[in-house]
């Protein structure tokens, strides 16, 4: 009897691990091993054509002391990240508007959200066209309003390229922020507002005292998404500017791609990746810490 139960238990365990195995295998192949491999690679001189050789901290030294492009892309990533609050603020306004009981709010929500699931490559091409120096809509508007005499080559100017890309990125992601904030708003019990109204709190006070504090986890979640976005937003940059002009829009992720797959320096790119990942984990940890562990990570590949 005991034997039979044990046998059944073994079979069950086998089944469980058999069920888990494919997923674990995929994550091992495409998440865990790559991460470790990156770590190893970053301490080596290695290329597909020659055997590995221990390099110590050579790549890290090179990167931090001599590589201006690395620092440029580092700052660009930081700027990209720092722009997230703008998008979140917009999203908050929109979320508050569509949270009101008006007719057609579902249509409004859909329209605002619609730019998020769109292919990022297409978003890049759309915005590239809007920014066109000669006949782009944005330059047309600026010129019609008399704000600019000639067309501004947004994506070819080292001053405007990064903000221009950021605007496109915000346009794409604002709907996602809005949905998250909206979910947060809808989770706030209506009774709190009613109680506050009875106590004579003004609308602004209600917003400041009830909405904002209770919305904090959602806002932090948006921040985390903004951070992830600044680390993963490869497609948009690649299509719109390819990191140019002269690395003005280079993010860490595009720089890694360039070093690895255009220049063929896999070892150096691995070191960049490790620094990139460490930076990312630090920020995620910081965000989690600041939010009191409420905000989580989100998958966004």
């Amino acid at each position: 009897m005991a034997f039979a139960i044990r046998k059944k238990r073994t079979r069950e365990l086998l089944l469980i691990w058999f069920f888990l195995a494919p997923s674990l295998l995929i994550f091992a192949l495409y998440r865990i091993i790559p991460l470790l491999w990156n770590g190893v690679l970053s301490f080596e001189f290695w290329s597909p054509y020659k055997p590995a050789e221990f390099a110590g901290l050579y790549h890290y030294e090179e990167m931090i002391l001599y590589d201006d492009v690395f620092w440029q892309s580092f700052w660009n990533t930081a700027v990209f990240m720092a722009s997230a609050p703008i998008g979140i603020l917009f999203a908050l306004v929109i979320a508050l508007l569509v949270d009101t009981p008006i007719r057609g709010r579902n249509v409004y929500r859909t329209i605002v959200f619609m730019s998020y699931p769109v292919m990022t490559v297409a978003v890049g091409i759309i915005w590239q066209w809007l920014y066109n120096e000669d006949v782009g809509l944005i330059n047309y508007i600026l010129r019609s309003l008399g704000m600019s005499g000639r067309g501004i080559p947004f994506l070819n100017s080292s001053t405007y390229a990064l903000p221009a890309v950021i605007v496109a990125s915000i346009w794409q992601v604002v709907g996602f922020y809005m949905i998250i904030l909206l979910t947060g708003l809808q989770n706030i019990p209506q009774s709190l507002y009613e109680a506050a109204s009875i106590d004579g709190a003004s609308a602004w006070q209600r917003f400041k005292r009830i909405t904002l504090p209770l919305l904090r986890p959602s806002i932090f979640l948006c921040f985390v998404i903004g951070i992830i976005n600044s680390f993963t937003n490869f497609d948009l940059i690649y299509v719109m500017t390819d990191g140019g002009p002269s690395h003005a829009t280079e993010l860490l992720v595009t720089y890694i791609y360039r070093v690895a797959f255009k220049l063929g320096q896999f070892d150096y790119a691995a070191a960049l990746t490790i620094v990139n990942f460490a930076f990312f984990v630090f920020l995620a940890w910081l965000a989690n810490r600041l939010s009191g562990g409420e905000a989580g990570a989100v998958e966004s590949t």
């Binding site: 994550f27 998440r31 865990i32 991460l35 690895a260 797959f261 990746t273 590949t301």
Partner: peptide, 30 residues
Amino acid sequence: DFTGKGSVIMLFLSCMMIPFQVTIIPAYLI
């Protein structure tokens, strides 16, 4: 329920923290 369930969940959660973009080089080699 099985032994190691907690670690598997932990493993999954930490994998979530690895953006695909940081794995591209070895993933390509693999």
